[in-house]
């Protein structure tokens, strides 16, 4: 899932300086799981802002709505009319959600980001999330025992480890595990150490053309047959 982190409160408050009627728009998917932008977090931020504005005697109002996903048009459309009532919308979705909501609203309302989107990750333990994928578009996990060298190696080496690892730790940061030692340990467990003997060529970093677009094969544009038109004649 996409992992994000709430921006510092002062930064959020500064962003809202010019607006009086504010809506905190939560997103009930990835950012709800990573406790950054779900219904509960939207409620907390709203309460915090309401209290701060009351202390400032600024007369600003803050309300909140949370939709299931801000990266799906249908969920935004459901609340589109309501969103029109506010001066500004503080979206606490990931960067995708903020941009897509802004796209659907098409310049009718200003969208402000409440989160900093950080990485694609997994839940290591309650309250802790770890990065596991860089979305490189050219997966090699079959060759590395399910440990990604692009993400887990600080240098994204395709043939590691480098000479900088010490007792399984990375030279970039000694608290960080060496990705290639993790790969070695995993392959050893799987009894597939021979996979390390094959040299991997340069990685295709052009596999994803940014900004990329994917159209599912079942949704490829088709040529419309003109037979129907002929029949009508």
């Amino acid at each position: 899932m996409i992992i994000a982190k709430l921006k510092p409160f002062d930064e959020i408050k500064e962003m809202l300086e010019d607006y009086r009627k504010i809506l905190v728009l939560g997103c009930g998917s990835c950012v709800a799981v990573c406790m950054a932008g779900g219904e509960k977090e939207a409620g907390l931020l709203t309460t915090q802002l309401q209290m701060a504005f009351e202390l400032d005697k600024s007369g600003k109002t803050v309300e909140t709505i949370t939709i299931l996903r801000q990266c799906d048009r249908e969920y935004i459309e459901e609340v589109k009319e309501k969103l029109g009532q506010y001066d500004a919308i503080l979206s606490i979705a990931c960067g995708v959600g903020v941009q897509f909501t802004a796209e659907v609203l098409d310049g009718t309302k200003i969208l402000l980001p409440g989160l900093n989107t950080t990485f694609l990750g997994a839940t290591a333990e309650p309250g802790t999330w770890v990065e596991r994928c860089l979305a490189c578009g050219d997966c090699v996990l079959d060759e590395t025992g399910g440990v990604c060298p692009v993400t887990m190696c600080s240098k994204s080496l395709m043939n590691g480890p480098c000479g900088g690892h010490e007792e399984g730790k990375c030279e970039v940061e000694r608290t960080r595990d060496c990705g290639w030692v993790l790969i070695y340990e995993r392959l050893k467990k799987l009894n597939k150490l021979d996979l390390l003997k094959t040299f991997k060529g340069p990685k295709n970093y052009g596999a994803v053309k940014r900004p990329d677009k994917i159209i599912h094969e079942a949704y490829q544009p088709v040529a419309v047959e003109k037979e129907e038109a002929k029949d009508k004649k």
């Binding site: 409160f9 002062d10 915090q48 701060a52 202390l55």
Partner: peptide, 8 residues
Amino acid sequence: KLLKDIGL
């Protein structure tokens, strides 16, 4: 921390 943020 949240209280400190808002000035309480």
